[in-house]
């Protein structure tokens, strides 16, 4: 059981981390409106996953709360303002590609974590844990694919201009 709790803590941390990264990317590229809006939508997915994970852990008598370090609002506003101010510089294109690359790697790592959760659930015949992984893992894959897609879409202009 302790191994499962440890795994849940890892996945919980990774979902919160991905949500924070997505929100940071959204703020940094607030002048790139598709990145801004979609990254915030996808951050919502990860925040929902973290909530579901915490709920599941609680059912097993294990508390996951406390790790959810929300970005304080003034910092969020400052970051978005910086995104606006630098929005006219061509370098922001390269920065976006780089951010998406890092995001993809994070999401792929998290996807592997969910893979482990799914396999563990099957080995332990834990229906609830399997349902949780079935619910969340496809979203993680979509987050990873989106980051990959954005790298593909943005890199030609960022590199060849």
């Amino acid at each position: 059981m302790n191994k499962v709790n440890a795994l849940l803590r890892i996945v919980y941390g990774a979902e919160n981390n991905l949500a924070r990264r997505l929100r940071a990317i959204g703020d940094r590229h607030s002048s790139d409106h598709e990145i801004y809006h979609v990254s915030r939508d996808l951050a919502g997915w990860s925040e929902e996953h973290a909530r579901l994970l915490a709920g599941h852990a609680r059912e097993r008598g294990y508390e996951l709360g406390g790790a959810d370090r929300r970005i304080p609002r003034p910092w969020h506003i400052l970051r978005a303002k910086a995104g606006e101010l630098t929005g006219r510089r061509p370098e922001t294109g390269l920065l976006a590609v780089w951010d998406m690359r890092k995001l993809h790697l994070d999401a792929v790592g998290l996807s592997l974590d969910w893979e482990i959760v799914g396999q563990t659930a099957q080995a332990l015949k834990d229906e609830d844990l399997l349902a949780l992984s079935t619910r969340c893992h496809p979203d993680t894959l979509r987050q990873a694919r989106w980051a990959n897609h954005m790298v593909k879409t943005l890199s030609p202009q960022a590199m060849a201009s």
């Binding site: 002048s31 409106h33 929005g87 061509p90 922001t92 294109g93 202009q157 201009s161």
Partner: peptide, 8 residues
Amino acid sequence: LRYAEQGS
């Protein structure tokens, strides 16, 4: 339009 805004 965004690329024009960025200057590329």
